[in-house]
Design a protein around this nucleic acid. Sequence first.
DNA 1: CATGCATATATGTCTATTGCATATAAGGCA
DNA 2: TGCCTTATATGCAATAGACATATATGCATG
Lengths: 221, 221
Amino acid sequence: MSHPPFAVTVDLVLMTIADGALSALMQRRAEEPFTGYSALPGGFVGVDEGLDDAARRVLTDKAGLAGGDSAWLEQLFTFGDPQRDPRMRIVSVAYFALFPHAVLAEAVLSRPDLRLTTVSNLGEPLAFDHAAIIAAAHGRLKGKLDYSPIAFALLPELFTLRDLQAVHEAISGTKINKPAFRRRMLGTNWIEPTGQRESDTPFRPAELYRKSAHVADWRAD
Amino acid sequence: MSHPPFAVTVDLVLMTIADGALSALMQRRAEEPFTGYSALPGGFVGVDEGLDDAARRVLTDKAGLAGGDSAWLEQLFTFGDPQRDPRMRIVSVAYFALFPHAVLAEAVLSRPDLRLTTVSNLGEPLAFDHAAIIAAAHGRLKGKLDYSPIAFALLPELFTLRDLQAVHEAISGTKINKPAFRRRMLGTNWIEPTGQRESDTPFRPAELYRKSAHVADWRAD
DNA sequence: CATGCATATATGTCTATTGCATATAAGGCA
DNA sequence: TGCCTTATATGCAATAGACATATATGCATG
């Protein structure tokens, strides 16, 4: 058999927790096709460029994220329906990336074509098959939540147990029992107390934790 | 940005349990590159062909598996290192598929270029990055074992609880406590007793079970 | 300065699950 | 008939989680 030409792209689901809800960064399209639609940031893979490299490049260039090199970035799934792009045959390798809210909030402020949308309620039809890509990203995130320290990628360096629980609840869509969650998290070796406490609370301040050093580069696909 | 041409292939990790060990179907290569090496069955994706369709086609044509349409087939990961194929830039979408032992055993008997190799000990260097693909397939299988009825795809229609436990032990690489495994499996609604018993055993015959009808088309990626 | 509020943090109980040990059942075979 | 091997069932301890409740603490309010 011959080897027909394809274009290969990467599409990125950049997620964070905004206002207690899992949210993804969308980009308003200026060109055909799907002009004016919201789409995931993405781009063509260079002919001498690795897939992960292409994803990191799109992170920096298209979404304007300086901290792209330190973000949690993971290949998600590959979408290759022959009809998924009306222009030509495009196979898209989807990635998802996780950020503390401040990082994506700053990107949205600095770029008028970017916005955050709630993952569980997109609010408008998206370009291409991007709604399916987002659903796959949410599913993967939900599945890894319990056995991998993935939630910390959505939090700043210092966080309280309440913050961490809010992340878990936003992703899983369920309320979690507080003492049980607390024991479970302290039982893992994923977090360590800092001795510091949050400030400016109208109530008793909670202790601040940070992700343990030995899970800094944890992965398990 | 332009869209440089890629070739897109699918590579298949066809697995079963052989002699109590998780095993994968390998094909001896007759052409360059890697002539004489063992490789995963694979092939180019047609320009108007979906990725899953291409995987099913390779299952039937290259590996000679008639029952390919009913097998458990799942996209695994996409490998796209620019150097992974010396001929040209190829992005390969890897799939894994699961079969009862008899299906792959028959394929091996009818085709001299096919053989089964133990996943945990390949015994020889493989072509391309296929060793990494097999490792990824094993990891995915191990991860899904506990929360999905994936093991039944490796067993014939009727099986004993001992058979099922052997599958779990082969994949996880650990010994499992028998009464606990038994209770856990009977506690799920994944299996149902048939009332039949195995025959020709030199000891008390065990009851034969089958996969429950409502998990026949179960998936959760 | 005392009190109350909202939340953090700790503990105690109940239940479900799992590991482990043991007891009983049943077919084949000497 | 009795023994061997495995199937099947059950009892007990250890563990982990859900849930309720008690105590601690910073701040606001009077």
